[in-house]
């Protein structure tokens, strides 16, 4: 508990919207914590409640229930925000400022001394890949550049904890890769990173822990290697030249295969059955093309939670 940088207990948020004050339960009884030094991925499809949770944590909206704390202090205590950097989902900034005026202003709000600001700001532009954009007005920045300066502003106080809401959205694959590398580099420097995303492939290899939220409820929580279904023994077997009759017979065990030309791909639920299954296929006139253990990805877990 002592190392928990973020701790969220039974947080709920109900919005009242529209003319009839209809209730929208955006977040329901969410509990989890983030440990010092971790990269924590907060995953969920659009509308799951990620942004709402983050906004509660940042003190932008007030929870309907539950308690949230940062560095062991209540999240509404402004002292809890001194070592915190936050990049919101949609980066709209003061368009009449230049990039460096903007970072300088935010540095002042953290009380960073001016000599330190002058030293640090050029490094930040370098770090987020905006080398020659310091004197450009923010209204001339593209969406991707705004996303990057959004991360730069979150680093202006050299925070211990970084909270990023959808840092990869609005970026092309190269940009996403760069942000991922930046997150890893920041972790190496001892920072804790908590970020939300609905784009999964980028996430699996960098997160120490993840939480999956769907429809306002926390569905999964833990280290990725603890997710049992990721270790499934599903095995893919491919034959060439099976007769339709043989395919029909083999499907009894596995369900219909994916057929491409003369190739038929079966997926076996367990590796133990592979030996005899191959035998049956060969007996049916097929020749074995490949035998591939299929590791399920986090995306599969995510998809199955999202469908429930």
């Amino acid at each position: 508990m002592g190392n928990d940088v973020i701790s969220i207990e039974h947080a709920s948020k109900t919005f009242r919207t529209g003319f009839l004050y209809r209730k929208v339960e955006a977040v329901r009884d969410v509990t989890f914590s983030v440990e010092e030094g971790d990269i924590f991925g907060f995953l969920g499809p659009n509308g799951a409640g990620k942004t709402t949770t983050i906004k509660m944590l940042m003190g932008l909206i007030f929870p309907t229930g539950g308690t949230l704390s940062i560095f062991g202090r209540p999240h509404t205590d402004i002292a809890s925000r001194a070592a915190l950097g936050y990049a919101p989902e949609q980066p709209y900034f003061y368009e009449y400022l230049t990039g460096s005026e903007f970072l300088d202003y935010y540095g002042q709000l953290f009380g960073v001394p001016s000599a330190e600001r002058r030293r640090r700001i050029p490094l930040l532009f370098e770090m987020v890949g905006l080398r020659n954009c310091a004197d450009l007005a923010l209204r001339r920045y593209s969406k991707g550049m705004l996303q990057r300066i959004g991360i730069a502003q979150a680093l202006v106080n050299d925070p211990r904890l970084l909270v990023l809401d959808e840092p990869m959205s609005g970026l092309d694959p190269i940009g996403r890769r760069e942000i991922r590398d930046l997150i890893l580099a920041l972790k190496k420097r001892g920072k804790t990173i908590f970020f939300s995303t609905h784009i999964l492939p980028d996430v699996e290899m960098i997160c120490d822990r993840v939480a999956i939220i769907v429809k306002g409820e926390l569905r999964r929580l833990g280290r990725i290697d603890e997710f049992a279904e990721l270790e499934s023994e599903e095995t893919e077997v491919c034959f060439r030249g099976l007769s339709a009759e043989a395919i029909g017979k083999l499907s009894g065990e596995t369900g219909a295969p994916v057929v491409r030309g003369t190739l038929a791909y079966f997926s076996l639920p367990s590796r133990d059955r592979a030996q005899s299954f191959i035998g049956e296929g060969q007996a049916g006139g097929g020749s074995l093309v490949s035998l591939t253990p299929r590791r399920r990805s986090l995306e599969d877990v995510f998809m199955s939670e999202a469908r429930k």
Binding site: K55, M58, G59, L60, I78, A79, R81, A82, L84, Y86, A87, P88, Q90, Y92, F93, Y94, Y106, L109, F110, G111, Q153, N157
Partner: peptide
């Protein structure tokens, strides 16, 4: 409206 308040209120600023 422009959400600039998000990045200010989340700083140590009352």
């Amino acid at each position: 409206d422009r959400k600039t308040v998000y990045t200010i209120v989340s700083k140590p600023v009352r």
